[in-house]
Simulated assay, not measured.
Amino acid sequence: MRPHLALIEDDPDFALMCRTYLERAGFTVMWAIDARAGKAAMYEGGIDLVVLDLGLPDGSGLELLRALRSTSRLPVIVVSGRGGEADRVAGLEIGADDYLVKPFSQRELVARIRAVLRRSQPPDVPVVLEVGALRVDTAAHQAAVAGIPLTLRPKEYALLELLARSPGRVFSAEQLLEQIWGASWQQPATVVEHVYRLRGKLSGLPTPAPRITTVRGFGYRLDP
């Protein structure tokens, strides 16, 4: 799934530039223009990381960070025109995970975000998903039915793993595009093609296998 960011920034032009670049880089972005809206965004839930400007029109970004750190370890990257050592030290000591001084390149911002997200994630725990005779090893990125390995392309495997994580749940084409391809602008025909190929590989096995069911008007689900 695409990481969900909260961008708390009072400069509309700068915020639009950041948001556009970050979304193209594979993130979803919620923009808040001041401390009040930023606080609501941070505590809304579903946010993976906050990009926080310090100079907000209705309060200090540092105070917002201090309040957040009293209850949460949500990753925060401070972005600010205040590049002095005292400012950087204050932000990091209060609890920022990184501090980026304006102006900076959007590529650097993306790299810093990805680095902080990697550090904040717990170590991967290998998970084996079982749906009927299907066994999906998420650590090895391999799938088998009744011990018979499936030869899958990367997106076919990603599709099968996603469906196997929630058997019986219906996923729309738009949800599958967003979560697997990271881009809802792709054509739904992309999903149809991959479902068709994956169905062929499951049905071509010499043993009964789970099936991908089309729920007309809604999407697809995996049935044991």
Rank of each mutant, 00 (worst) to 15 (best):
S80P: 07
K39A: 10
E23Y: 02
I47R: 15
R112M: 10
S166G: 06
D53F: 00
E156D: 12
S72M: 04
W185T: 14
S80I: 06
E44H: 11
V89A: 13
F104N: 07
V195N: 11
P208T: 05
L22S: 04
R169H: 12
E178F: 13
E193P: 03
G83Q: 15
R112W: 10
P208R: 09
D98W: 07
D34Q: 10
R221G: 00
L159S: 04
I94D: 01
W181Q: 12
G182K: 15
G95H: 03
E9F: 09
K39Y: 03
E93G: 01
G59C: 07
V110C: 03
H4S: 08
T138P: 12
R153L: 12
L64M: 14
E161R: 15
A67L: 09
Q186H: 15
A144L: 05
Q142T: 13
K102W: 03
V131C: 12
D11P: 08
G95L: 05
R82Y: 15
L22C: 12
S105Y: 04
P206T: 00
P167A: 02
E161K: 15
R66Y: 07
V89F: 05
I113L: 11
E178A: 13
V131M: 12
L65N: 01
A6E: 14
D34K: 06
S60W: 03
T190I: 06
E93N: 02
V191H: 06
A35I: 00
A209H: 01
G26R: 02
L134D: 01
L134F: 08
I148P: 01
P12G: 06
R169A: 10
D87A: 15
A90Q: 15
E156Y: 04
S203N: 09
V78L: 09
S184T: 14
P126N: 04
D124Q: 14
K39N: 10
L160F: 00
P75A: 08
A209W: 06
A37Y: 00
T20Y: 02
A164T: 06
A173R: 06
G26N: 02
R135W: 03
